[in-house]
Design a protein around this nucleic acid. Structure first.
Lengths: 121, 121
DNA sequence: GATAGTGTATTATAGGTGTATTACGGCCAA
DNA sequence: TTGGCCGTAATACACCTATAATACACTATC
C-alpha cells in the first residue's frame, strides 16, 4: 500500500479499512486479518495497525475478541449511517475546496461532468 | 485561522495563500503581508510561515525581494496553469474517494446535484 | 498442559513538525 | 547615517508519529 506523506499512516489505514468494510469487501460479523498479518500486508509496524484498530473499535465499527481477533460489527444500521456520513463528508470537502478556488456551485457540476467525460476516453 | 490537526500547518498556509492568489485576493505583482505579520494573523510562528513561503518561492508563485518582502508572480500564464492544476487535483481526489466508497461515476453526479440542492435550502 | 495464534503493553530510538529565541543582513526613508 | 521594517539562519526544546524489539495475556485446539 502506498501511503501519502504528510498524513499519519494510522489514519490512512483506518480510511482503507473503513472503505473495505463499507464496500463489502470485509463483511459484517466476519473476522478481519490479524494485526500481524495486516502489518505485513501494509508493510507497516504492528503498533501502527493496532492504533488504527483501537480507534475503530472505539468507534464501534469493529469489535475485538482478545485472543481471537477483530471482527466487523453486525450493526448494519451503523454501517449504513457511516457510509452516508463518509460520502457526505467527501461532498462537503469537495464543494468547499472548489468554492475556495473560485468555482461556483453551477461551475462545479459542469467541471465534474466534463472531467468524467474526459476520464472515459 | 483554524488549522486541521493531522496535516502540517505550513502546508495549510501554502494552501491558504495559493487560494488567496488564485481567487485574486492577492494580486499579481503585489506584495503579500510580511512573514511576521502573517505569523501574527495566523497565530503561528515566523519559522512556520517562512517554510511555506520558501516553498512557494521555489515553486515560482512568489518571488522574494530581500529586505522588501514577498510578491505574487506576474506570470499570469503560470497562475492560470496553477489554477487549472489545483482544480483538476480536487476533481481527481474527489472522484477517487467516491469510487473507493463504492459510488459509481453516474451516482457521483447525482449525489452532488442533490447535495447542492439541499445546501441551498 | 502445551502450543500456536490472537490482541496488548512497554521501552527505546529516530524523524518531522512547531515553537521560542536570538542574531544577522538587506532595503528604505527620515 | 540611523532606525525600522524586511527576509534569513541557527539553535534548543517539546510533541507526535512510526519503527523495532520484547514481553505479556487470552483463546482455541490438540
Amino acid at each position: 500500500m502506498e501511503f501519502k506523506d504528510n498524513i499519519p499512516i494510522y489514519l490512512q489505514i483506518k480510511q482503507y479499512l473503513y472503505r473495505q468494510i463499507i464496500t463489502g469487501k470485509l463483511k459484517p460479523g466476519k473476522k478481519i486479518p490479524s494485526v500481524r498479518e495486516l502489518a505485513v500486508q501494509l508493510t507497516v509496524n504492528v503498533n501502527t495497525v493496532q492504533r488504527a484498530l483501537q480507534q475503530m473499535n472505539f468507534e464501534g465499527i469493529l469489535y475485538t475478541k482478545r485472543g481471537e481477533g477483530n471482527f466487523v460489527t453486525e450493526d448494519t444500521t451503523l454501517l449504513d449511517k457511516t457510509k452516508r456520513e463518509l460520502i457526505n463528508a467527501e461532498l462537503d470537502k469537495f464543494v468547499h475546496s472548489m468554492n475556495s478556488l473560485g468555482v461556483s456551485d453551477e461551475q462545479i457540476l459542469i467541471s465534474l461532468s466534463e472531467y468524467l467525460k474526459e476520464e472515459r476516453e
